[in-house]
């Protein structure tokens, strides 16, 4: 058993090293590592940063070794932008990660089930997946967020996002499952006496898992973006710092109009970097998984 695990690990590491050869993957990974380190740095933030007017108002960024808190200036509420930003980053990453954990795994399950079932079961799952794919996500989430505003925390928001998030991964997994199930190797496995569950686990899942990983990453991107969109409407958890609420408050205090660029810019830069980093990673994995694309690279 341990041998098996070691073989699996070595396989994963070879895949990782192959991926590292793509420049795109390296850039993405570097950005992601920086983001995670910044998010971890939020653990060092002093509790006082949460209080309003603990610092002077509207200070522009200043580089002063004695007052590192003011590196990125302060907001109109007298709070340091540095700490808000890294905490917002951490919270947004948590929201993205938890949504991806819930949503993409529901997607994996439903997609697999839909791909292997036949007859009315297939029709029902397809109808379900397709209607959630077609449903406009933002309006639905706005309604849900308004209704559930009272119980919303960093940990329950992902649950709400997952209501929509599972559908695209499910559709993706279903189409891969269908294509694999129709291949001759599946018939051959069946004629080798391998049981249905064995076929799913050993023949179908290895194909699906790679795509599941890209789905997972894409869901993180989607969830962070969606949270931001909700926040701009004022429907996120406004008492907590997330990348979205940061933009909301900045807008609310007319930061842009008043020239407080240091309040507005960090969340935008960070959102864009996260998007680029994760997108590079997910697209290089997709590139790796798609032999047709891979063939053209060299």
């Amino acid at each position: 058993m341990s041998l098996n695990i070691r073989a699996k690990l070595s396989k994963i590491s070879t895949v990782f090293y192959t991926l590292l050869r793509y420049t795109r993957f390296r850039i993405g990974l570097a950005i992601l590592i920086v983001m995670v380190l910044l998010a971890l740095a939020s653990l060092t933030s002093p509790p006082v940063y949460r209080r309003w007017y603990a610092y002077p108002k509207d200070r522009p960024p200043q580089f002063n070794l004695a007052a590192m808190d003011l590196l990125l200036g302060t907001t109109s509420n007298g709070r340091p932008v540095t700490y808000i930003t890294i905490n917002a980053l951490a919270n947004s990453l948590i929201i993205g990660l938890v949504t991806a954990l819930i949503g993409s795994h529901i997607g994996l399950l439903v997609g697999l089930l839909s791909g292997i079932s036949r007859g009315y079961k297939e029709s029902v799952t397809v109808l379900l997946i397709d209607s959630f794919v077609c449903m406009p996500g933002l309006p639905l989430l706005i309604v849900l967020a308004m209704a559930l505003k009272n119980i919303m925390t960093i940990h329950t928001l992902p649950l709400i996002l997952s209501v929509i998030a599972w559908a695209w991964p499910a559709r993706n997994v279903r189409s891969i499952t269908l294509s694999v199930m129709g291949r001759e190797m599946i018939y051959l496995a069946r004629f080798s006496g391998i049981k249905f569950t064995g076929i799913i686990v050993h023949e179908v899942l290895p194909y699906v898992l790679g795509w599941h990983l890209t789905n997972f990453i894409n869901t993180i991107i989607w969830a962070i973006g969606m949270e931001t969109a909700l926040a701009i409407f004022g429907l996120s958890i406004l008492s907590e710092d997330t990348l979205g609420t940061m933009i909301y408050w900045a807008l609310n205090y007319n930061a842009l109009f008043r020239g407080l660029w240091w309040w507005m810019l960090p969340p935008i830069v960070i959102i864009i970097s996260i998007f680029i980093g994760l997108y590079f990673i997910s697209s290089s994995i997709a590139f790796y998984l798609n032999p047709r694309l891979r063939g053209h690279s060299q």
């Binding site: 291949r183 001759e184 018939y187 051959l188 050993h202």
Partner: peptide
């Protein structure tokens, strides 16, 4: 028992 057309498609490349 069967034998299929495409030898590369009839064995799973991951096994």
């Amino acid at each position: 028992q069967p034998i299929f057309q495409d030898p590369y498609a009839s064995f799973n490349p991951m096994q």
